[in-house]
Computed example of a mutant assay.
Amino acid sequence: MEESVHLDHATLSAKDFNRLSRFIYEQCGIKMPEVKKTMLEARLQKRLRSLGIHHFSEYVEYLFSPDGLANEMVPMIDMVTTNKTDFFREPDHFDYLTQRVLPDWVRRHGSMRFNIWSAGCSTGEEPYTMAMVLSEFADANPGFDFQILATDISTRVLDKAKNGIYSESLVDPVPQHLKKKYLLRSKDRSSGLVRIVPELREKIRFRRLNFMDDDFGMRDQLDVIFCRNVIIYFDRPTQEGLLQRFHRQLKPGGFIFMGHSETLSGLDVALTSVYPTVYRKMK
């Protein structure tokens, strides 16, 4: 039924594009320059078909109506956010976490619970990688316990992350001994699907979070924040404001892990570089 809707005007007018790009920037901090107009059109066409709307102009008017702001804002943001992730992406970060951060943390904190945040978790590969390496560390260090918070602005990717079901090709980067321990094969072997074991899934709390919110809604400060390959989509003032909020959310001595293409150079944030793209809140 959805496919029968024909888009009479499959291009956004300059006026509507500018209105949408301003709105996207205000809502989630993502810059949408003119060169991304074609990409925005392509992604929003799915929403037009789903809603039975024929014109982009009609869609924009609906989006900014009271009903649209209440019901369409989240699906629209889902369509325009970029979600790219892998298991064990930038693996040296996980080595640094388990070989340097965690042993030092255990010496300083003993049996306290270790709290880590996957900020911009996409479809879940990063927090499940965290859960695997932290579980391995816990097995080798009796008394160590951890909790993972995983957030994203997109409800679509969060739904997939919560299910913890992946194709076998996506879990290729997972070492074989961890696959055997933490992945369940589907009863239907021809499906090519695996699922994260329940004991890992229950260590992760998934929820929607918008980085542009003044209050992240967290009661406790965190030991580590992973926010990798996210701030590249923001302009410098937005990056600085976000990292200052991350800084407030960290415990003294806590760490932020950034993406390898990201830098804090030139930003007014009280974090010290301790390893390539790893920064520490010293006090």
Results as ranks from 00 to 15, higher is better:
residue 169 S to T: 13
residue 248 R to K: 14
residue 99 Q to C: 07
residue 52 G to T: 11
residue 29 G to A: 07
residue 107 R to W: 00
residue 224 V to A: 01
residue 67 D to H: 12
residue 150 A to Y: 02
residue 186 S to K: 09
residue 122 S to K: 00
residue 63 L to F: 09
residue 226 F to I: 05
residue 111 S to L: 12
residue 256 I to T: 08
residue 232 I to S: 10
residue 228 R to Y: 02
residue 137 F to R: 02
residue 86 D to L: 13
residue 102 L to N: 03
residue 142 P to L: 11
residue 77 I to E: 02
residue 240 E to A: 06
residue 135 S to I: 00
residue 168 E to Q: 15
residue 222 L to A: 06
residue 58 E to N: 10
residue 107 R to C: 03
residue 68 G to C: 07
residue 101 V to M: 01
residue 17 F to K: 03
residue 234 F to Q: 02
residue 174 V to S: 04
residue 29 G to C: 05
residue 277 T to K: 02
residue 212 M to P: 01
residue 99 Q to L: 08
residue 217 G to E: 05
residue 265 S to E: 15
residue 32 M to F: 11
residue 76 M to W: 06
residue 6 H to K: 13
residue 139 D to C: 02
residue 262 E to H: 07
residue 146 F to M: 05
residue 140 A to L: 13
residue 149 L to M: 13
residue 16 D to N: 11
residue 120 G to D: 01
residue 150 A to D: 07
residue 72 E to T: 09
residue 104 D to C: 04
residue 159 D to K: 12
residue 250 L to E: 04
residue 242 L to R: 06
residue 169 S to R: 15
residue 196 I to R: 00
residue 47 R to D: 09
residue 224 V to L: 04
residue 92 D to A: 11
residue 160 K to D: 11
residue 276 P to F: 10
residue 131 A to Y: 00
residue 191 S to H: 06
residue 266 G to C: 10
residue 50 S to Y: 15
residue 189 R to C: 04
residue 211 F to W: 07
residue 113 R to Q: 14
residue 10 A to T: 13
residue 21 S to R: 09
residue 113 R to G: 07
residue 60 V to M: 05
residue 219 R to V: 11
residue 243 L to P: 00
residue 58 E to Y: 03
residue 37 K to M: 13
residue 61 E to D: 15
residue 235 D to R: 12
residue 251 K to P: 00
residue 273 S to W: 00
residue 204 I to G: 00
residue 46 K to E: 14
residue 251 K to M: 05
residue 114 F to G: 03
residue 61 E to M: 10
residue 38 T to R: 15
residue 134 L to E: 01
residue 164 G to S: 09
residue 272 T to Q: 13
residue 270 A to G: 09
residue 64 F to D: 10
residue 161 A to N: 05
residue 220 D to G: 02
residue 191 S to M: 09
residue 188 D to A: 13
residue 203 K to N: 05
residue 200 L to M: 00
residue 101 V to L: 06
residue 259 G to K: 07
residue 245 R to N: 05
residue 189 R to H: 13
residue 32 M to G: 08
residue 115 N to G: 10
residue 274 V to R: 05
residue 120 G to K: 02
residue 268 D to Y: 09
residue 151 T to C: 10
residue 6 H to M: 15
residue 184 L to N: 02
residue 137 F to L: 01
residue 259 G to H: 05
residue 261 S to V: 06
residue 140 A to G: 05
residue 104 D to L: 09
residue 212 M to D: 06
residue 127 P to L: 01
residue 205 R to H: 12
residue 86 D to C: 13
residue 178 L to V: 03
residue 85 T to V: 00
residue 27 Q to L: 11
residue 255 F to W: 10
residue 275 Y to F: 14
residue 6 H to T: 15
